[in-house]
Design a protein around this nucleic acid. Structure first.
Length: 909
RNA sequence: GGGCGUUUAGCUCAGUUGGUUUAGAGCAUCUGCUUUACACGCAGAGGGUCGGGGGUUCAAGUCCCUCAACGCCCACCA
């Protein structure tokens, strides 16, 4: 073994070994064998590349998966990818554009074939990257949202929702992306603050063209779609005009002035133009007043014939032209600079147009109500809990979901229009049927509309999220009744980020409830957002991203995973810099070296390589009993913190770090080093027994430690397991119980052992502190005189002098009861006693005085504070007795300290 | 405009139901170490009164109010 742990050498090897062994498949063992534990991966886009968010998210899932697998659960981490309609279509379109080809040139079928080609060639990239991370997904069950099975689920859901009246087709004002030429759902529109203008325009009164009503707008080019001007009924300025008409400037068309609450007298001029086909608020106003919307724009965002001479101009040019003409005509009252939130498409970035179109919708209320109830009742819970509010706030308005997209890549809507032979064309009012297959559609059409008609399938595809919503059961074979569905649905924990609570989480919950009658998961763990070291979001455009694959190359997958886990405390976003991954790497190295150090001695002690089952524990050293107690505590802490819904990953990682580094390496190994490294060849039988025992305890601790560390650092722990000589893989071994001490029969003394060791370590601290203060080199052997307050404690210390000597370079150690301070000695306080280190020729009385005075001041300050607290009658009266008692004993021990320090100071002079 | 979050050592963060923490860790800094597992290491030291103000309480970093700064989400193109 090399003195530096080298992740590169082993990661690929182990990943392959696990896969070859089928270790990622759900199997289960031991008492939990028949209990399933299931996680479905948030399917990354096939176009995606692994970023730090994925790294965090998937590490969390892998930690849970490996933890539960070790506990013996029938564990499934279901992997897959998402077809990502717009994103994937765009990628392929861009590729075609390089050769000057448009998708329209190819036609739908050929284009879709191209996208499949692309998917088959590049779609595995992110999967391979997930493997680099160590993700223990059952890859034999890899699914894709456009697979035949999942597509069948999509059609099934569509048909059932339609039959239940929960899907309808209708003309509504929707969000239209002119660039992508498709409708979008509300959540797919992002408002971006942009500098713009607020124009006030004079509309001449029809009755008296010398008079005007001035309306304010940020979008003058939509005026050709105006159907009214609204004013507030309470607005004195305009009351008299209600019911009269105005003429739209530049046209001959007149429109009424109406009274509507939407007009806010405080905003602009208080008069608003109403354009129902191009504005969501106006759409509502139009409905209230029964006004027929006028569409003034084409789907490519150029103005149409309604705009007269501006017809054919794109919206932005038209805006400029209209404003210029209004100004020339003297109809522009004012222009104001203003920051305006502009709705933009989350994929293309183009400015979204509200547009009146025929689309497919999901009626949300009947689906949302049970989904809200599931969270309300706690059957699905969010971690951190506050995200339940985000979920609720989105679902509760019950806004219908526009699910049709005018794309080619996606699930084509299973609806067929029934075209009569005479007509041959599809119109808005063309009848249609909805069915699972074309044949079923034909049968239906025949029954309903007679035999003389042709069917044309709806060209629109479904929103990508429509298929993602079915992920927890479509991946398991639904609508068929498969064994995996029976075993693994509902799943357990969903790990995702807060950005897709609406897009995905909410929709999975209502879909699961609707079609399987059960919530798809009991816990939704919302991950932190990974930011750069300045606290900014990582993004391609900023170029501040950290590539996880680079980090794995540089520090190892284990190091990155561990660093992410230790940083991710509940709900707290993570500022990440490569420096932080160093601590993960250092930790791996620390563990590596501890094992590397002891391994040869294991062999030397027992005469065979590797760990053995006839380990010896007959006469355990205090340090042995102590580390085994600490091991049990650590097993308990890690187990509790990983158990859903606690999910305190950072606390678990922290406990592992502390135990490994501080207790196991810094204390235990140093104390037992001598016994471990003793030369077996020259040892007496007793000496050999002691060596065997020392290495046995070491091996026991390491074996359990790497097991509880395995979910966090799978590669290095598997490698260590092999180095220990175990043949079975760690990944499918058994999670330890916190009963090591019990099994070895040392449980009774655990509490006492922990206490004694802690006190002994404090004696070592006191010696080290004096050594540090006098800058004495580590090699300088110190004479230590320990003065204990009583005989029982003296006896214990006397019995464990070797522990002190193993951690500090000391010469003679004497342990007495209440001994006097030797001349020219430095003094230190220890539990139940004092400690003196003769430093003749080294001791500087002045420096020593400063040292002790500082400590004395602190202790006296504490005593003063405690006395004040305890002299407060209401404290003594109101506080619980054990608190008061605790405070009293704290005071007493500090008083003791003060006395001892005073004595030490007196001895100095 | 509405909601949520954050504000604790130079930096990045812990601190679970208010009381053995006049506040912990890692990094950084300083001092001393080629101590034969690890310099990706070992030992020691300095450094904060917990964003400001007010309140509740015997007791507040921890609860309430308020102000401020930063961040995120939602709404809003009149």
């Amino acid at each position: 073994m090399d003195s530096r742990y080298s992740p590169k050498d082993i990661e690929e090897k182990w990943y392959k070994t696990w896969q070859d062994a089928g270790a990622f498949k759900p199997q289960g063992h031991g008492p939990n064998k028949d209990k399933p534990f299931t996680i479905v991966i948030p399917p990354p886009n096939v176009t995606g590349a692994l970023h730090m968010g994925h790294a965090l998210n998937n590490t969390l899932q892998d930690v849970l998966t490996r933890f539960k697998r070790l506990q013996g659960y029938r564990t499934l981490w279901q992997p897959g990818t998402d077809h990502a309609g717009i994103a994937t279509q765009s990628v392929v379109e861009k590729q075609l554009a390089k050769d000057g080809v448009k998708r329209q040139d190819l036609g739908r079928e050929a284009f879709v074939a191209k996208v499949w080609e692309w998917k088959n060639e590049y779609g595995d990239r992110i999967v391979n990257q997930l493997m680099r991370l160590g993700s223990s997904c059952d890859w034999s069950r890899l699914r894709f949202t456009m697979d035949e099975g999942l597509s069948k689920a999509v059609r099934e859901v569509f048909v059932r929702l339609y039959e239940d009246g929960l899907i309808y087709r209708g003309t509504r004002l929707i969000n239209w992306c002119p660039k992508l030429q498709t409708a979008l759902a509300d959540e797919e529109v992002e408002n971006k603050e942009t500098k713009g203008h607020f124009w006030s325009i004079r509309y001449p009164l029809a009755g008296d063209p010398t008079q005007f009503i001035t309306v304010s707008t940020t979008r003058p080019e939509t005026m050709f779609g105006d159907v009214a001007v609204a004013v507030n009924a309470e607005d004195e300025r305009y009351k008299h005009l209600i019911g009269t008409e105005v003429r739209i400037p530049g046209t001959t068309r007149t429109i009424p002035i109406i009274a509507d609450e939407h007009a806010d007298p405080a905003k602009g001029t208080g008069a608003v133009k109403i354009t129902p086909a191009h504005d969501f608020n106006d759409y509502e106003v139009g409905k209230r007043h029964n006004l027929t919307p006028i569409i003034a724009m084409n789907l490519d965002a150029t103005l149409n014939h309604q705009a007269g001479k501006y017809a054919g101009m794109n919206r932005f040019d038209a805006r400029k032209a209209v404003v210029a003409d209004l100004e020339e005509a003297g109809l522009l009252a004012s222009v104001e600079d203003r920051v305006i939130p502009i709705p933009t498409c989350y994929r293309s970035g183009d400015v979204v147009e509200p547009y009146l179109l025929d689309q497919w919708f999901v009626n949300m209320k009947p689906l949302a109500v049970p989904a809200l109830e599931a969270v309300e009742a706690g059957r699905t819970r969010f971690v951190p809990a506050r995200y339940a509010k985000t979920y609720r706030d989105w679902l509760e308005p019950f806004k219908d979901w526009c699910i049709s997209r005018q794309l080619w890549w996606g699930h084509q809507i299973p609806a067929w229009y029934v075209i009569s032979e005479t007509d041959g064309k599809r119109r808005q009012d063309t009848p249609f049927v909805v069915a699972r297959t074309a044949e079923a559609a034909r049968a239906q059409a025949k029954a309903k509309y007679g035999a003389n008609s042709a069917l044309i399938q709806e060209e629109d595809v479904l929103d990508t999220w429509f298929s993602s919503a079915l992920w927890p059961f479509s991946t398991m074979g639904w609508p068929d009744k498969t064994p995996e569905l029976a075993t693994h649905y509902p799943t357990d924990v969903l790990v995702t980020d807060r950005g897709i609570i609406y897009f995905w989480v909410a929709r999975m919950v209502f879909s699961g409830l609707k079609f399987l009658g059960k919530e798809p998961f009991h816990t939704v763990y919302i991950t932190a957002t990974i930011l750069d070291e300045k606290g900014q979001r990582m993004s391609k455009s900023k170029g501040n991203g950290i590539d996880p694959i680079d980090m794995i190359e540089k520090y190892g997958a284990d190091a990155m995973r561990f660093a992410l886990m230790i940083m991710t405390t509940e709900g707290q976003d993570v500022k990440l810099s490569p420096v932080k991954l160093e601590s993960g790497r250092n930790f791996a190295n620390k563990l590596w070296n501890a094992v590397r150090f002891v391994l040869p001695h294991l062999e030397a002690a027992f005469g065979t390589a590797g760990i053995r089952d006839d380990l010896r524990y007959d006469d355990l050293h205090l340090a042995d009993r102590w580390i085994l107690s600490r091991l049990d505590e650590t097993i308990r802490t890690v187990t509790e913190n990983l158990e859903p819904p606690t999910l305190r990953f950072s606390d678990a990682a922290q406990a592992l770090y502390r135990f490994t580094w501080d207790d196991f390496c810094s204390s235990y190994l140093e104390i037992r080093k001598k016994a471990i490294t003793a030369d077996a060849a020259t040892l007496s039988p007793e000496g050999l027994a002691a060596k065997k025992q020392a290495v046995s305890v070491f091996a026991t601790v390491v074996e359990k430690l790497i097991t509880i560390l395995h979910p966090f650092m799978p590669f290095i722990t598997e490698e260590i397991r092999q180095a220990l000589g175990r043949e079975e893989l760690l990944i499918t071994s058994q999670w330890p119980s916190a009963d090591t001490c019990k099994q070895l029969g040392i449980e009774a003394s655990s509490a006492h052992d922990l206490e004694v060791m802690t006190k002994l370590l404090r004696i070592v601290d006191a010696i080290r502190s004096i050594r540090g203060d006098y800058a004495l080199p580590p090699a300088h052997a110190l004479e230590v005189r320990i003065s204990c307050d009583d005989e029982p404690w003296r006896k214990i210390v006397e019995g464990h002098k070797d522990i002190i000597a193993s951690l500090e370079k000391v010469g003679k150690i004497s342990v007495e009861v209440n001994s006097a301070k030797p001349a020219f000695s430095a003094a230190g306080l220890i539990p139940e006693g004092r400690l003196f280190i003769p430093l003749e020729g080294i001791l500087d009385p002045a420096q020593e005085k400063v040292r002790l005075t500082k400590e004395l001041d602190k202790a006296e300050g504490y005593v003063a504070a405690q006395e004040k607290k305890l002299s407060n009658e209401s404290f003594v009266k109101s506080a619980p007795a054990e608190v008061v008692e605790g405070e009293r004993s704290k005071l007493q021990s500090q008083k003791d300290k003060v006395e001892k320090l005073k004595a030490a100071l007196a001895d100095l002079s």
